[in-house]
């Protein structure tokens, strides 16, 4: 082997952490769907490469107590049929093409942290925890803090933790074609009927997923939590508040090849209304799903 950087293929997490400690600044290779094309074009330089593919413990997913744990190297395809996490599964199914779903991973989505990433948007709505592991052990960060601070150069994302669902959840998305496209706008909605709250995140509209806090509060206050239903106009109002949240979000994206910015906020509102109608129909049945 020659040159300044090489390929490391650890077979266990501890080996990966040792390797990372020995070569700070190395690129962590998960699925590669973002990294490999970027290396080719030169958009990202080639550095020391640590592949995580062989670390079996990173591919595990499971449930324990109130928590679901998803290993960083779980692929979208691994999650697409997971009945314990319906929102996550819906998100995974909506990602790219079969080829991308078979390759891309949870950890990769967090590593790239593309504002258009489907998974990131759902994880924000789910208020997921991100488990990072380093030489001194593992720690868990809230998704918001993770996106703001990332992790140390000697740490890697090893898992994502989600609260076991306490109510309906969904992920809706508008792409530029019928399927196999990145989101122009997307909406993840997670209903927590135990704590009587919802969390809503909008993707594709700003430099990171946007939480619509005022809209969430509106639902928390107006929903009939005994049935899990919204009053007739509340879903509509929820959509308006989400659209407003997008318009006023910091770092809101401008017009691009897919859509003008005004469309994104409009679309976010529509998706939010739909998501609310789907997740907060209560016991009234299918009719309540029509806004």
């Amino acid at each position: 082997m020659t040159g300044v950087a090489t390929m490391r293929r650890p077979r266990s997490l501890s080996e990966a952490i040792d390797t990372l400690a020995a070569s700070p600044g190395a690129d962590l290779l998960a699925g590669g769907t973002d990294l490999v094309p970027a290396l080719r074009t030169g958009a990202r330089p080639v550095r020391e490469m640590i592949s995580l593919r062989r670390i079996v413990e990173l591919r595990a997913r499971g449930a324990a107590g109130d928590w679901l744990t998803i290993g960083a190297c779980a692929t979208y395809a691994d999650l697409a049929g997971w009945s314990l996490a319906p929102g996550l599964a819906a998100t995974a199914r909506s990602v790219g093409s079969p080829q991308i779903r078979n390759t891309g991973t949870v950890g990769g989505a967090l590593g790239t942290a593309s504002p258009r990433g489907d998974l990131l948007t759902f994880l924000v709505a789910a208020d997921a925890g991100v488990v990072v592991t380093g030489p001194v052990g593992q720690r868990q960060l809230g998704i918001g803090r993770f996106l703001a601070d990332r992790h140390g150069p000697d740490e890697l994302v090893t898992a994502v933790k989600l609260a076991r669902p306490c109510g309906p959840q969904t992920y809706l998305k508008i792409g530029a074609r019928q399927t196999a496209s990145i989101p122009v706008a997307s909406c993840a909605l997670v209903v927590d009927r135990v704590r009587r709250l919802v969390r809503c995140a909008i993707g594709g509209v700003a430099s990171r997923p946007v939480r619509a806090l005022a809209a969430e509060d509106h639902v928390a206050e107006t929903a009939d939590w005994s049935t899990g239903a919204l009053p007739p106009d509340a879903a509509h109002r929820f959509g308006e508040l989400v659209a407003e949240a997008v318009t006023t979000a910091p770092d809101v994206a401008g017009d691009d090849v897919y859509a003008p910015a005004a469309y994104r906020s409009h679309a976010a509102g529509v998706l939010a209304r739909r998501a609310a109608a789907r997740c907060l129909a209560g016991a009234r049945g299918a009719d309540a799903r029509r806004p």
Partner: peptide, 11 residues
């Protein structure tokens, strides 16, 4: 329209 992602309202 929009496929599974958009879940268009039939109405």
């Amino acid at each position: 329209p929009g496929g599974r992602g958009a879940q268009a309202d039939p109405a």
